[in-house]
Design a protein around this nucleic acid. Structure first.
Lengths: 134, 134
DNA sequence: GCCGATATGTTATAGTATAACATACTATCT
DNA sequence: AGATAGTATGTTATACTATAACATATCGGC
């Protein structure tokens, strides 16, 4: 289960499938409900699959939402830090990375002798389409 | 309840007091337990106070932890975006802001016609002291 | 076939957050 | 003082999120 996940288990496939078809982030329980018809019965089945998928970079957890999205970033694995812009109206999640932001944060971390394990950047608001729609 | 909160209610005072004396972020339920001896009985009492304190900028919510800290930033209200570095060993939370990071994210937001309401930046890891201690 | 490692199934429970409704306090106006 | 409107508080119940713990099954190498 390193950077590139080679093969997925049945449950991981199903969870990733549910997230891939979703138009907005899904909570673990929303995934569970969707997969009940395929045999899922309990939260740990979902959470265990999510854990592996997140570790493998195929799924991201949105901390400010307690929800999950399939990765949509071109080359998620090679670029640095990833930021998310999340539309609170339609659920659209835009994934992006910015070299300058990564650099600055990395410098702050180094300057403060901090050992970084994970960094979260999440912008909440309304996307262009929804802003216009008001 | 604008930027500068003028006066705090009794419950807000108590919740802020608990957070101010804490050495690490506290969950709402940890605050509740600490304030039971002072008459608190139920979660809404804590959550309602937190809501106002967060809106007033006196307390920050750490999304990746589902926990809260008293604001420790010099001038939290005038500076831009705030980032948090959170030590997973000792719970130390360092609040900082970086002009370049703010600028870059603000530009991304404007370029994408996004209407920003709130941005979260949280770095998880070990602080200098704890990294050395291993 | 045996064995270890991993994946899965299942039950129960812990931890986080809010809805809904009742009561009380505070300030202002008359 | 009494009426009233707005805010704050108290309380019960419930919804939502996440994991512990244990049982069973599946896969791969020996």
């Amino acid at each position: 289960m390193s950077d590139q996940m080679t093969s997925l288990t049945k449950n991981q496939e199903m969870v990733l499938g549910a997230l891939s078809h979703a138009k907005a982030p899904m909570s673990a329980y929303a995934i569970l409900d969707e997969l009940r018809s395929e045999g899922f019965r309990a939260p740990p089945q979902v959470y265990r699959a999510l854990e592996k998928l997140v570790a493998g970079g195929l799924v991201h957890r949105l901390e400010s939402l307690n929800a999950f999205v399939a990765c949509s970033h071109e080359d998620c694995h090679t670029s640095g830090l990833i930021a998310f812009a999340i539309c609170e109206q339609c659920g659209l999640v835009s994934e992006f990375s910015d070299q300058a932001v990564s650099t600055r944060l990395t410098h702050w971390i180094a300057d403060h002798k901090f050992t970084n394990t994970k960094t979260t950047i999440e912008i909440r608001g309304d996307c262009g389409t929804c802003s216009v729609a008001g």
